[in-house]
Design a protein around this nucleic acid. Structure first.
Length: 897
RNA sequence: GCCGGGAUGGCGGAAUCGGUAGACGCAGCGGAUUCAAAAUCCGCCGCCGAAAGGUGUGAGGGUUCGAGUCCCUCUCCCGGCACCA
């Protein structure tokens, strides 16, 4: 830390400001905020310049998607970042806080469909408006580093790195499964599929397999998992979620041999049905196998079984989302094909199951109904045999209903021949060894993590730099032709990618053979854009390189702040991208974000109405009337527009698409940016989910008014009494002033502690407590004036990161200094904290009965004696002798009788 | 369904290592000021009880001199689940 606890609290300058206009008596947030923002602008106060002589502090908040207006989640996120930025600046760090725009994405296309405006125009208009909103909040942002991911000078480097990944085999092409809308003839995002139907057309969505580009994030699985241990300043829960997502597990991959042949007479898959299991210890309990609808065995069997073909078709209409797969009704159908159990030689029937995914493992699973809950349910439904092979203690096994212990790994094998009596580990070792001996399988490391499909069949994204040539195939765009620029004047209409109707974009000579060829029209997943923007902020303006030596100075990000909803995908992709850049020699860090603060979501009521034709329609909270029960809970709602009921969906994240965001503008206009910022910080700790309510905003505003009024009182009544030179260090204070001073320094100590914990709500309340104390302070002596003056100087500085405008004005106005940003952060003084006598809580038999005052120097025996002798103790001890006395130093005494 | 998190007065929340539950604020109530109101200031404010006291941190159990905090079981709510960002 640049600032140790040895620093003394600075006293205000004693000199009177020269010819200043008289201080305003009333708090005028409009004038104050305008003046402060102007001051920062003219002094370029937040311009960040590399400086090797000072410790750097790169503070980054997740950049916003320019959806139109800021909402309260943004205000919360960016205020947290700003508080940390300003706090560190005052502690002597060389700080950088940039801002930019995650500017590609689906909402711009949705807006285009609705309003017939090109996504580019809509996006740039939104950026303009939201930038104004951010400025009005007074954030300490270095705007000279601003970037937007939809600009070619940014996304050029997405394309450039993608081509490097292709060269290294990290990027590759394979088929992917997508949601297909048969009416609009377009690919739908999961968000655009509602109850299995397209959001615009209402048509039943189909699964389709199309080619796409993937990034081999699984090649980095081991490192992404291992390096989580180096992230000491990340929340444990985020690391845990990432580790679970990566999902390293050891299991056994093995094959059921078979003789099934296709029409040409060749063995399908070389006569082996491969499966993966983490429960090889239950292999002797296999009673059937299940394969995915797309599995070659399923395809083969369906040729002679129309009802199976129908079932497979139905499976292909199902959702591709994991949550849907897990919760849907499990269904299956027998193929009539049989494979051989590799250890018992028994015949095992193959079923098609709608819950088996072709994209995971080998697209097939062994089924052990006795020890897997899903298989159990499936076997019960289709009356398949259930064979117990694990026993736990004396518990009896019954096939009537699933019992929790059936699934446990703690137990021993039974009905398993030579494996009987073995525990989980021993059984797996023995079974995998036997399978290996038969050349039918082995232990295998399995990852849950899948490679990252980045192709999107959408217009408003970064073009994938590939050219398709009839002769040469898929040809990478040569570096000197980068960037492949996306035309900005297209207006998507919902029916496919409009790039396919743009000959000027499509038609291009093949870079290899020069013959007419066609550009790839798929664009990149927007997670690509956000996977490295933090590094680009450190390299503004360089059109020759993706990053330069300035990134070496600023990276890694010292403090990253963003919503907990990004705990897995965005953060994992960013970590992956960093490691790829490192392996290409572009950067030297292993991990991009040293410290992470995951902000809780800001929630608001959700209202919707559903219809078969138009899909789902969302209502903003101001567009409905609420009905509530006696406890104040919302029971229902009607639309203001037509008086008809709308569905109440409880609380959910504020989002543009669900129309439940709250625009901070009204709040800022009425109360000012400082009030909005203070309220956001005061109302809840940063990591906590927040159900939005503006009840209480007036209290925050009232507090700032009181701060201002106290400043006025200070200027007119207290400051004139200050002695020429400070006496605080030498003179003994009367008890009431010593108490006041101790209280302020104690509050400062707590505030500094809480800032370290990033718990800003209690920092805010500490400043309120300081003001309460200062307002009650005596004002009738030079010494009192000194104590108050010191206390107010502490209050203003502690408050300044939260409410920078009002504290900027008061600091200068009251003559504490020219610019509070240049002031040093206050530290509590030990001398102010000492006290002669302390009060301990007095308990008898663990129940609090009162308190007892003891000298601060009293030892344990003295405290015991004083406590037992006290009137309160005597009353509740009821004449019995003390059996045991527990003394917690500085806290309490508990007498056990 | 799986993974992660949460639940404390009428409301937002506080309680740093297991040590006075409800700090600070909102709302409410009473008072001062005012012709009146707004604004401001002062006081009260978990629940039961006249008081003494009892009781109380989503529900139920446990450990401990002492549990909001630790352990077990459960309920509800929020986030993520790979094409929302």
């Amino acid at each position: 830390m640049a600032d140790s606890g040895t620093r003394t609290v600075t006293s205000p300058s004693m000199s009177q400001p020269t010819t200043q206009p008289a201080m305003q008596e009333k708090y005028n947030h409009i004038a104050i905020e305008k003046a402060a923002q102007q001051h920062w602008e003219t002094t370029a106060a937040f311009k960040a310049v590399e400086d090797a002589t000072r410790p750097k502090y790169y503070c980054l908040s997740m950049f916003p998607y320019p959806s139109g207006k800021l909402h309260m989640g943004h205000v919360r996120n960016y205020t947290i970042g700003d508080v940390l930025t300003r706090f560190h600046k005052m502690r002597g760090y060389n700080v950088m806080q940039p801002m930019g725009w995650d500017a590609f994405g689906l909402p711009a296309e949705n807006a285009a469909i609705a309003n017939k405006v090109p996504p580019a125009k809509w996006t740039y208009d939104n950026i303009e408006y939201m930038k104004g909103q951010l400025k009005s909040l007074g954030f300490a942002i270095d705007w000279s580093r601003e970037l937007a991911t939809c600009k070619p000078d940014y996304y050029k480097w997405n394309q450039w790195l993608f081509l490097r990944m292709l060269e290294k085999g990290i990027a590759y092409k394979k088929t992917q499964v997508v949601n297909w809308d048969p009416v609009d003839q377009t690919v739908l995002a999961n968000e655009q599929v509602i109850d299995g139907r397209g959001w615009r057309t209402g048509a039943v969505v189909e699964k389709r397999e199309i080619p796409g580009y993937y990034l081999g994030i699984t090649q980095y699985a081991e490192e992404l998992l291992g390096d989580l241990d180096t992230l000491d300043n990340w929340p444990e829960r985020v690391k845990l979620m990432q580790a679970n997502w990566i999902g390293k597990s050891t299991g056994v991959r093995f094959a059921f041999p078979h003789e099934i042949k296709d029409e040409a007479g060749a063995l399908i898959n070389d006569g082996k049905l491969w499966v993966f299991t983490t429960r090889a210890d239950t292999i002797m309990g296999v009673t059937f196998c299940a394969v995915a609808a797309e599995h070659p065995l399923a395809t083969h069997a369906a040729k002679n079984k129309p009802e199976l073909a129908t079932f497979i078709e139905k499976c292909k209409h199902g959702s591709v989302m994991e949550a849907d797969m897990a919760t849907m009704e499990k269904e299956g159908m027998p193929t009539g094909l049989f494979v051989t159990h590799p250890l018992t030689g028994e015949s095992v029937e193959v079923w098609v199951g709608n819950y088996v995914l072709m994209t995971y493992g080998d697209g097939a699973v062994m089924a052990v109904p006795s020890h897997d809950e899903r298989d159990f349910a499936f076997a019960k439904k289709y009356k398949l045999p259930i064979k117990q092979v694990i026993k736990q203690g004396e518990a009896t096994f019954s096939t009537d209903a699933w019992q929790e212990w059936y699934g446990t790994k703690e137990g021993i094998c039974v009905n398993s021949g030579k494996y009987d009596g073995m525990d989980y580990t021993a059984a797996i070792d023995a079974i995998s060894a036997d399978l290996k001996a038969k050349n039918l399988g082995d232990k295998k490391l399995q990852w849950r993590l899948r490679d990252w499909g980045i192709s999107r069949q959408r217009y408003w994204g970064c073009p994938i730099p590939i050219i398709h040539c009839d002769c040469c195939g898929s040809v990478p765009v040569p570096d000197e032709q980068l960037p492949v620029v996306l035309p900005e004047d297209c207006v998507p209409d919902g029916a496919g990618n409009p790039l396919n109707r743009r000959p000027d974009f499509l038609n291009v000579p093949c870079p290899k053979c020069g013959k007419p060829a066609r550009r790839e029209t798929d664009t990149m997943d927007t997670f690509v854009d956000s996977s490295w923007y933090y590094a680009r902020f450190a390299t503004p303006g360089n059109d020759k390189a993706m990053v330069d030596e300035r990134a070496d100075y600023w990276m890694p990000v010292d403090q990253y702040i963003g919503g907990i909803e990004h705990a897995i995908l965005h953060l994992l992709y960013s970590r992956f991208w960093s490691k790829v850049m490192r392996d290409m020699g572009l950067v030297s860090y292993r991990e991009p974000f040293s410290r992470l603060l995951t902000q809780g979501m800001v929630l608001n009521h959700l209202f919707s109405r559903r219809s078969d034709k138009t899909g789902i329609e969302w209502f903003a909270p101001e567009e409905v009337h609420l009905s509530k029960d006696e406890a104040g809970r919302v029971t229902g709602a009607t639309a203001v527009r037509d008086g008809n009921p709308v569905d109440y969906g409880g609380f959910g994240t504020m989002s543009k698409s669900k129309r439940n965001g709250v625009d901070p503008n009204a709040m800022i206009e009425q109360y000012g940016a400082d009030t909005a910022r203070f309220f956001m910080m005061f109302t809840a700790p940063p990591e906590q989910t927040l159900e939005w309510s503006d009840a209480g905003i007036e209290g925050s505003n009232r507090f700032l008014k009181r701060v201002w009024t106290f400043g006025y009182t200070y200027a007119t009544q207290i400051k004139p009494q200050l002695p020429a030179a400070s006496t605080l260090a030498s003179a003994k204070l009367p008890e009431n002033l010593a108490t006041l001073r101790r209280e302020i320094h104690l509050l400062l100590k707590q505030a500094n502690y809480d800032l370290g914990k990033q718990q800003f709500n209690t920092v805010a309340s500490a400043t309120m407590k300081m003001l309460n104390a200062l307002e009650k302070a005596p004002r009738n002596s030079a010494q009192a004036a000194e104590v108050v003056s010191e206390g107010f100087a502490i209050l203003l500085r502690v408050l300044s990161p939260i409410t920078p405008h009002i504290t900027h004005a008061l600091w200068a106005e009251l003559g504490y200094g020219a610019d509070i940003l240049q002031a040093t952060w206050p530290e509590p003084l030990e001398a102010a904290l000492v006290q002669d006598e302390i009060e301990l809580v007095l308990q008898v038999l663990g129940k609090t009965r009162g308190s007892v005052k003891v000298p601060a120097t009293a030892d344990k025996a003295a405290i015991e004696a004083l406590a037992i002798a006290s009137e309160t103790a005597q009353k509740f001890m009821d004449g019995k002798p003390a059996k045991k006395v527990i003394v917690v130093p500085g806290r309490l005494v508990n007498i056990v009788v």
